[in-house]
Structures are given as structure tokens and as C-alpha cells.
Amino acid sequence: MIQITNLTKQFGDFTAVDNLSFDIKPGDIVGFLGPNGAGKSTTMKMITGFLEPSAGEIKVNGFNIDSHALDAKKTIGYLPEGAPAYGDMTPAQFLSFIADVRGLTGSEKTQRIKDVIASVELESVLDRPIDNLSKGFKRRVGLAQAIIHDPKVLILDEPTDGLDPNQKHQVRKLIENLSKDKLVIISTHILEEVTAVCNRAVIIAGGKKLFDGTPLELEAQSKYHQSITLKFTEGKPDTSVLNALSEVKEVLESEDDNAVTLIPQNDAESLFAVLFAKSQSESWPVAAMFAERGRLDDVFRSLTAQV
């Protein structure tokens, strides 16, 4: 449980986070989105107690991060941006150190270290100094460090940045496999990641909250939500008859010369049937017909461009 109330952070004249408020419940996997410099990292640094807010209050699992810092920090696992670690240590030494700090001892410690090493697949590099590891491995060491004490609150600042597609997939699976009573905040630039792993999206820009809802609601904001694209095999026929259909709200030229995109009046399904019948009666050379979920990039741009 994280409660953020009227959170503000100023660096001199610059306001990085501006009167931000939201609550996060256990089970929420929040995708924290925003352009560079939006205040994502600053907010995360304040939630984890690294930075002190200029104004406002943060409570993590009921503990005020300012007045009960240690109690709050014990329940948090944090992967800072860039996954910093002690480069002269090996992952084995580093994880053992973190486990000690997290109060793990004896067989529990050994077991937890074994578990996290297996879940982020670090076996092959356990005895190499972290400085000599590739970016992907460093990131995984950082992740292992964050989850070693099985925290209730997991805060990951760009966990998949710099990873290859296989590793990204792995990290997403790792997050999905966390137990359901956990609370996860992931900051990212990658919008697909939000639909892939999150059940809540929060967009901020200029330190202000612009959107807070499910990834589906975010997609629904797209003009292309439930739009249908008709693709033709060769040469686009005259499709002006589509303009007259009551199910069609708008006809858009597609980037593809051989296609046309239709925005439905209601939903994709009713339009689908009409289009199917129409293309048969007009005997159009249809190659494909597909519905879109929405273009998140466009939504993101239009939301954040206003600020």
C-alpha cells in the first residue's frame, strides 16, 4: 500500500514533481509513464526515501517514509535507474551482502540467494566482478538485489532498459510471476510493456499526473481504438461507398497505399460484419482485415504534448 498525498519536489526554481497524489493497492502493477524529465525517477526516489519531498507526504505500508524511514525501507525492494551496484564485488558477494543487510540469515539466506539467482539466471557469472559484466547481466544483478527479501513493494526504475528482447521477456515474466499481493511500480518508456505486464497505467509529465487508469482505458483514448483496416491485394479500389455507411464514423487513408482504415461508430464487431458483406458485394480484392487495439504512441504523444 502506497499513499502519496500532494507530493511536490523542487530543485531550486525548477519543480520536478508538482502536487502529485495517488494511492497504490497491493496487487497493482503500475506502469509509470512519462517523457524524459517528467519526474518519474524523482517520484520513485522520494517513495524509496532517497530524496526528501519539498512538500507532501508518502506512506509505504502505513509507514511515513520521512519519520519511519527504516520500517518503510524494509518493505521496499528498489532497482534504481541504471542498476548501480558495487562493481568490485562479484554477484555472489554482492547478493550475500544485500541479504545480510535485509536481515536474512542461515539456511533462509542461502535459499533466497539460490532462488533469486535462478529466477534471473545469473549462474554463469556468479564469480565475475560486476564491473566486468554486460549491461544485461548488471541489470539482472540489480533485479535480484531488489527481490531478494521478497518485498511487499517493488519499485523498478526502467528495469528493461538496455536488455535484448529475450531478456525483456524474461523480466516481464519475472514480474508476472510475483505473487498477487505485491505492489509493483515500473517506470518505462516502452508503451507495449505497460499493456504486457501492468494492470494500471499512470502517465505524468511536467511533474503532474495526466492519466491514471487501466492499460485498456489508455488504449480506448486512442482514435484508432477498435478501428478496422482493410487491406487489398493489388491497387486500392474506389472505397468511397464506405463513407456512407452508418456504422462508419470516419474513413482514414492508411500509410499503406493499398489499405484503408475505418473508425467505427460503435464497436469493431458490428462494423466487421458490415465490411465483410460490403467487400463481397463490391467484390473487392481483400487481402486482410484486422482490428486495432489502439495506438498507445499516439495517445502518449497527445497526452504529454499539452504540457
Binding site: K45, T48, G49, F50, L70, K73, K74, I76, Y78, P80, E81, G82, P84, A85, Y86, G87, I98, V101, R102, Q145
Partner: peptide, 14 residues
């Protein structure tokens, strides 16, 4: 310089 201070200061350590 390495940023590890962020890790250190967010661990339950004073």
C-alpha cells in the same frame, strides 16, 4: 559517481 549511493541509502540503513 557510480550511483551506488542510491542503493545504499534506500536500504534499511541509517
Amino acid at each position: 559517481k557510480s550511483g551506488s549511493i542510491e542503493l545504499l541509502m534506500t536500504l534499511p540503513i541509517t
